[in-house]
Amino acid sequence: MLSHVLFWGGGAVFLVTMGFLALAFLAPQGLRRAMGSRRFLIGGGIAFPVVVLTALLGYSLSVSRALTKPMSDAPLRVEIIGRQYWWEVRYPDLGEGAVTANALHLPLGREVELNLTSADVIHSLWVPNLHGKLDMIPGRVNRQRLRADKLGELRGQCTEFCGQQHALMAFDVVVQTPEDFDAWIARQRAPVPQPETEEHRRGMQVFGEAGCGACHAVRGTPWVARIAPDLSRVGSRATLAAGALPNNRGNLAGWIAAPQDIKPGNNMPSYARSLEGSDLLALASWLESLR
């Protein structure tokens, strides 16, 4: 509704302005002379835009105030930390292990409070279908309340230039029924299952030998670092590298082998020269199985 009012209000100012411009060229000389009078200039050039734009400003402020007004006393808190160039997402009210990366899951119809901050430079979070933009500033927590009223998948994006790969800093928003959301949280908190195949066992071994656990966490294992995205359920995510690639085994292997070729400037080193092809595929296969 707000966008419609602003569009038509701005459109009315534009049409009136263009109408006056046309009259200035096409109207008879007597009318053009009248249009040059002080009364006409003050009324059409000052009073009209001031009244219309002030009314639009007042309306937008009233709607914005209503959007930020708390709807409940106990919203679901979600902590989102912007990093170059990915998103860390935590649900502190739902347990220690309720954490993911580059994906925001929301329960349908429940008010959510996003606590937004940054670990490095200024980022800005925007989900066009849910709410406006809000900056994420190092050392400060900005809060944004929203409620998703339709099931489905949406896209979010960083809208503040934050470095070389700013354009490839997106995230998925998944709106679920409360039951599906609770089941998803339970899976996030649970430790990953032990590998069942020889290939997956080798992949898990390669993960440790290659030093991946120095940056990444996998629940239920000794690897608990928070420098890079949590990989506990990486196989269930729709994309890799904050929306840079669809998530599948081939892209996982390609990302591990040459992340700088895919997303130059990110903080992950390349493993093409340090991992054998079979080990690389085993590692990608194990990560894909973490769902």
Rank of each mutant, 00 (worst) to 15 (best):
R110I: 04
E113P: 09
S72D: 15
V51Y: 09
E79M: 08
L76G: 08
Q29W: 09
R110V: 06
G58M: 00
A66G: 12
R33W: 07
I42K: 07
E79V: 10
R90N: 09
L21R: 15
L21T: 10
V121A: 08
L108I: 04
T54A: 10
R39Y: 01
M71A: 14
W86Q: 00
Q84D: 15
M71K: 15
Y59D: 00
P92W: 05
E113N: 02
W86C: 03
M35S: 10
M71P: 14
L114A: 03
A47P: 11
A74F: 09
V52D: 03
S60I: 01
V99N: 03
D93L: 03
H105L: 10
V50R: 02
I46C: 12
P70L: 10
A47I: 15
P92Q: 11
P70I: 03
A98K: 10
L108T: 03
L21G: 15
V51I: 15
D120L: 06
E96Q: 13
P75A: 06
Q29A: 14
G58N: 10
A24D: 12
G95M: 03
A74S: 15
A66D: 05
N115F: 01
R77T: 11
K69P: 00
H105S: 13
P28K: 11
A47E: 06
L116K: 03
A34L: 13
M35L: 13
S60K: 11
A74W: 09
G36R: 01
L53P: 01
Y91R: 05
R83I: 07
G43E: 08
L61I: 08
G36H: 04
A24N: 12
P92F: 07
R65V: 12
L57I: 11
P107Y: 10
Y91N: 02
R39D: 08
E113M: 02
I81P: 14
Y91I: 06
A66Q: 14
R110H: 02
T54L: 10
P49W: 06
I122R: 12
L104W: 01
N102T: 12
A22L: 14
Y91M: 02
E96I: 10
D73R: 08
W86Y: 13
L41Y: 07
D120F: 07
P75I: 02
V52R: 01
P49G: 09
Y85M: 10
W86S: 09
F48Y: 11
T117N: 03
G45V: 06
L26S: 08
I80W: 00
V52P: 00
A47N: 06
V99F: 01
R39N: 08
L56G: 05
L26R: 14
V78R: 00
G30R: 13
M35R: 04
G43T: 13
G109I: 11
D93T: 06
E113G: 04
Q29P: 07
H123Q: 13
R38D: 11
Y91L: 05
S64P: 02
S60P: 01
L57Q: 12
G45Q: 05
P49E: 02
S64Y: 13
R39Q: 13
N102E: 06
V121L: 12
A55D: 09
K69N: 08
W87N: 01
A24T: 14
P92L: 02
T54P: 04
H123E: 04
I81D: 11
L94A: 07
D120W: 06
G109H: 05
F48L: 13
Q29Y: 09
P70H: 01
R39K: 12
S37V: 14
S118R: 02
P28E: 04
H123Y: 13
H105W: 14
